[in-house]
Design a binder for these strands. Structure first.
Length: 318
DNA sequence: AAACAAGCCAACCGCCTGACA
DNA sequence: CTGTCAGGCGGTTGGCTTGTT
């Protein structure tokens, strides 16, 4: 009996909570590789996991799925998040559809930890017109500038030394967003079809290459389904392709620890440009609006694609 | 070196919706 | 029509990591 007098089933009493262990992850991965996703409560039982179906679903979608991209949010992704959020607000899952491999949870965390922080530092509400204007007329143009600069640098570099296979794959997958249709790995709402732009337009395909820090921003070609490509995994490193250090308290959080490059480094604010009474430089001693150290080497979309997206979104509103 | 604060993110919670009996 | 269930969503929190004093 619980405190409310309900009779708990044995399963309810045994349910585990908190961080997932390696063994649990392996059980979930292997079960889904064999039987596929869906029917999460049944799946949890059948896989021998003492977790709720919800918990299994969340773990799979946000962490274990082979196409989950981890690591830094790129400048292009930041720009896209700002743009889409300005349109749709906190529709995280909808926004996530346009960021291949990113989860709604990750985008939500990015928004809350980075964007809202800046709103706070500017002493305005994140939903205020003032802050939205800051984003649209200051932050986003700066991001575009940075993206252009990075793209130019990349082009020069590429011309000098032939691109690697990975770079080629990335370009093929992402730089022709409006033309590229491969296996659709996303649910697409009718609303999205209306504007002639679907999430799959920006997605190479199922990304099945194991995640490593080195390939974190490259898409890999893949087979059609998870089930056909994964045999039973007994070692988590087989799945992630990186050593598992196992020295973490929660025993699962460091399959891969993304580098902690601060996103604050990717945001800039030239003093004197903002028309309102906002003194960016005085707000932050270390001037986190300075983008100089931002890492933008991994361009998922070039500027033309971004402008295309902008155009499509404008059409959507007409 | 220790204590504290802030940043960050995985995981949980409650609510909502749609499918189905 | 109603109840149940599964799945999805956005908000919130707990705890680990990192930075600062």
């Amino acid at each position: 009996m619980d405190e409310k007098g309900r009779t708990l089933s044995e399963d309810e009493m045994d349910l585990r909570r908190g961080p997932w262990t390696v063994d649990e992850d392996l059980a979930l991965i292997n079960y889904i590789a064999t039987h596929g996703e869906g029917r999460w409560n049944t799946l949890a039982l059948s896989a021998g996991l003492k977790r709720t179906g919800k918990s299994c679903r969340l773990r799979w979608l946000n962490y274990l799925r082979p196409d989950v991209r981890r690591g830094n949010i790129t400048l292009e992704e930041q720009l896209l998040i700002l743009e889409l959020h300005s349109r749709w607000g906190n529709r995280w899952s909808k926004i996530a559809q346009y960021l291949p491999g990113r989860t709604d949870n990750e985008i939500k965390n990015y928004w809350r930890t980075r964007v809202q922080k800046h709103a706070k530092q500017l002493k305005c509400d994140v939903n205020s017109k003032q802050f939205k204007d800051t984003m649209r007329y200051l932050w986003m143009p700066r991001l575009v500038e940075r993206i252009q600069a990075a793209a130019a640098a990349t082009t020069a570099k590429t011309a000098a030394a032939n691109t690697t296979v990975a770079a080629t794959a990335t370009n093929n997958a992402y730089t022709h967003g409006n033309n590229l249709i491969n296996n659709n790995n996303f649910e697409v709402h009718s609303h999205d079809h209306k504007m002639g732009l679907t999430p799959s337009d920006f997605v190479g395909s199922h990304v099945t290459k194991s995640y490593t820090p080195e390939n974190s921003n490259t898409a890999a070609s893949s087979s059609d389904s998870f089930g056909t490509q994964v045999s039973t995994i007994s070692d988590i490193t087989d799945y992630y392709g990186v050593p598992f250090s196992g020295n973490n308290n929660n025993n699962c959080a460091d399959y891969y620890q993304p580098s902690q490059v601060g996103y604050k480094d990717c945001i800039t604010s030239p003093s004197g440009l903002f028309p309102q009474e906002l003194d960016f430089q005085s707000l932050e001693p270390n001037n986190p609006w300075n983008m100089q150290s931002g890492d933008s080497s991994d361009n998922f979309w070039n500027v033309e694609n971004m402008l295309f997206l902008e155009q499509q979104l404008m059409n959507d509103n007409m």
